[in-house]
Write a protein that binds this DNA or RNA. Structure first.
Lengths: 298, 298
DNA sequence: ATTGATTAATCGGAAAAAGCGATTACATAC
DNA sequence: GTATGTAATCGCTTTTTCCGATTAATCAAT
C-alpha cells in the first residue's frame, strides 16, 4: 500500500495550475499562501519531480504538472460525486435535478405530470431543458443534464434506460378525406397519401416511419413541420395526413381542428418512452422513482 | 468548495467492505483497530448516512457502502496512477513494462531487437505476452498489459497508436513453380494459385488479402497454417503459395527451404507495424521511446 | 446461567500534520 | 537604488491522526 498524495494537495495543485499564481490559488483554497506553498512542496517531494517552474516572476506548470492537474481534477470530481451519491441515498427526491425532454414529449406530458410531481416530491427542484434527442444526449454526457426523457428506439451509447411504456401512433387526416371511415388504417393506406412529417432531427420522424414499416427515402420533403402543432394545422388545411403519438392527442392537439383520427391496425405501431441516465450517475434511485411517478401519465 | 472525504478514509472503507471485519481491515491498512473505527465513523458522519450495518457479530456493508466502496476503489487507483505518471516522467525507461506482441511479429522482430533494447534501457523490465490481436487488446483494456505491438490496419478502440513503419508482403512459392521468374508478382498471379493462409483469428490473414485486393470469401480453407513457419513448410511441399511479411523473411524463415520469393508489384502491398496503448496511460513517453528504439529493426 | 472469546466502540494522551502570520529572498519595474 | 510583487522559509498554534487501554456487546461453550 504505497503512499499517495492527499486530495488536499491535489486541490492545491489544480488551483495553482489554473491560476499560475500562488497567492490567488491560496485565496481560492481559503488557506494562506504559506500553507499552499508548503502543500505544493510536499507534493513535489512525494512525487519526486517538479510540477511548477518558478523561474522569473511567473509560475508556469511543467508538462507533468499539467498532466497531473488534469488527472487530479478527475479525482476531485470523483470525490465530490461520493458526496452526491450519499446525499442522493439519504434523500433521493430532494435537491436540484436537471432533466432533458424532447419536444414531442415535453409539451404533452409535462403540463399534466408536473403538478403531481411537485406535490409528491416537494423538495425536488426540477430544471427542464427541451431539445432534440442528439443534443440532449450530448449534454447528458457532459454532465449538464442528470437524466433525459426521450422516445425509443434510439441508438443510445452506454446509458441506463428505464422503459416507461408505449405511446401509439394514430393517423390524423382531414375530416372530408376520401379515406373510408373504417376502424383502423393500414400502412398501405398511408403509403398512398401525402404523409406530413416533422423536419429532420426529430426522432419521431424516423420512429413513425419505422413503426409503420414505411420507407422514408422517397418522402415528400417540401412539407416538413416544425412541431406537432404545426403538423396538425397542416392536416386541417388539407395538405396531407400525418402520424401523431397518442400522448399529443390526449393533450388535445387536434381539439377545435376539422380533422379525423384513426388508430392503426396490425402490429400497433408505437414509440416507447424512456428515461435514461449515465451508467455512473449518482442518483439512480432518484430517477427510478421519478420514472415510476411519470408512468401513470403515459 | 465542499468538504470531501479523504483518501485515507476511503481506503479504510474499502478495506472493511472487502473483509467485513474491522480488525482485519485495520491490519491491512497498518493502523490500529481504534484508528480505523474512528475513520469509518468520520466518513459516515461526513456523508450523513450509514455505510456499514453492525448488527449481530458481523459487519455487513449497506448498499450505499458497497456503492461508495466501488467508487473509492476507482479514486484510489487514480491516485496511485498519479504516482506512476510521476515515476514514469522521472525515469521513463525504468521499471516493469508489460508488452503484448502478436505471433506474426514477435518471433521475428524481438530476437533481433531485444539485445539492443536491454542495452539501451538496462533498467526496463520487459514482460512479454504473445497472443492474437483481439485477446491482447482485451488485456490492454483490462490493464494487464501496458502496450501492444501489433499490425495495422485493425479496428482499434479508443487507443493511441504510434506507427512504426511498414512491412511489405512478398509471394513465396515452390522453387519449381510454373510462375514466370519475372521481377514482381501481380494480384492476378496469386488469384490463380492455391493461396495458403494462417487460420482465422490471425490479423495477417485479412491484412494480406486486403493489401493484395483479393477476395477472402472463396479461399481454400482446407490448408490453414498455424504459424508462418508452418506456412513456409507447406509451400516448400508444393501445397500452394503464400504471402509472407518482409519481417519474417529477414528473420530467415525460408532459409534452407526449396522455395522462391518474389516481391509484389504495384501498390506495394504491406501491413503497418504499430505500438498502441490506452489513451489514459501513465507512460506515454516510455512507449514513444520504446517505439523509436524498435523502428530501426523493421 | 456463567464464563470466556471475539469484536467494535470509546477514551485519554501522544505524535504528526496542517495551518497561520511574519519575515526573508528574489526578481522586476520605476 | 528603491519600491513592488511574489514565493519560500520560519516559529508557533491548532487540528488531526493515531495508538493503547478499556468498555460494551454478542455469541459459544460449558
Amino acid at each position: 500500500m504505497r503512499t499517495v498524495p492527499t486530495l488536499r494537495q491535489l486541490r492545491y495543485l489544480v488551483a495553482v495550475v489554473d491560476r499560475c499564481h500562488f497567492g490567488q490559488a491560496a485565496a481560492a483554497c481559503n488557506v494562506s499562501q504559506s500553507t499552499l506553498s508548503a502543500g505544493i512542496q510536499e507534493l513535489e517531494d512525494l512525487l519526486g519531480a517538479p510540477l511548477l517552474e518558478r523561474t522569473k516572476r511567473t509560475v508556469v506548470p511543467t508538462a507533468l504538472g499539467r498532466d497531473l492537474a488534469d488527472r487530479s481534477r478527475g479525482l476531485l470530481k470523483g470525490a465530490e460525486e461520493l458526496m452526491d451519491v450519499a446525499q442522493a441515498a439519504r434523500e433521493p427526491m430532494a435537491g436540484p435535478l436537471h432533466l432533458g425532454v424532447i419536444p414531442t414529449i415535453g409539451p404533452f406530458l409535462l403540463p399534466r405530470a408536473l403538478p403531481q410531481l411537485r406535490e409528491t416530491f416537494p423538495k425536488l427542484q426540477l430544471y427542464l431543458r427541451e431539445d432534440q434527442t442528439a443534443r440532449l444526449l450530448e449534454r447528458l454526457d457532459a454532465g449538464e443534464l442528470d437524466a433525459v426523457l426521450l422516445a425509443l428506439p434510439y441508438a443510445l451509447g452506454d446509458l441506463e434506460v428505464m422503459d416507461l411504456g408505449e405511446d401509439r401512433f394514430s393517423v390524423v387526416y382531414p375530416a372530408d378525406h376520401r379515406l373510408p371511415a373504417t376502424d383502423a388504417a393500414t400502412p398501405a393506406d398511408i403509403a398512398s397519401e401525402n404523409l406530413l412529417l416533422l423536419e429532420d432531427g426529430h426522432c419521431l420522424r424516423d420512429q413513425a416511419l419505422a413503426a409503420c414499416e414505411l420507407e422514408g427515402a422517397r418522402r415528400n420533403t417540401a412539407f416538413n413541420g416544425t412541431s406537432l402543432h404545426t403538423l396538425a394545422q397542416m392536416v386541417a388545411n388539407g395538405l396531407g395526413v400525418t402520424l401523431m403519438p397518442q400522448m399529443a392527442l390526449d393533450a388535445g392537439i387536434v381539439r377545435g381542428l376539422d380533422v379525423a383520427v384513426r388508430p392503426m391496425t396490425g402490429s400497433a405501431p408505437h414509440r416507447r418512452i424512456g428515461l435514461v441516465w449515465r451508467r455512473t450517475s449518482a442518483r439512480k434511485e432518484t430517477f427510478r422513482q421519478l420514472g415510476e411517478a411519470l408512468r401513470p401519465f403515459l
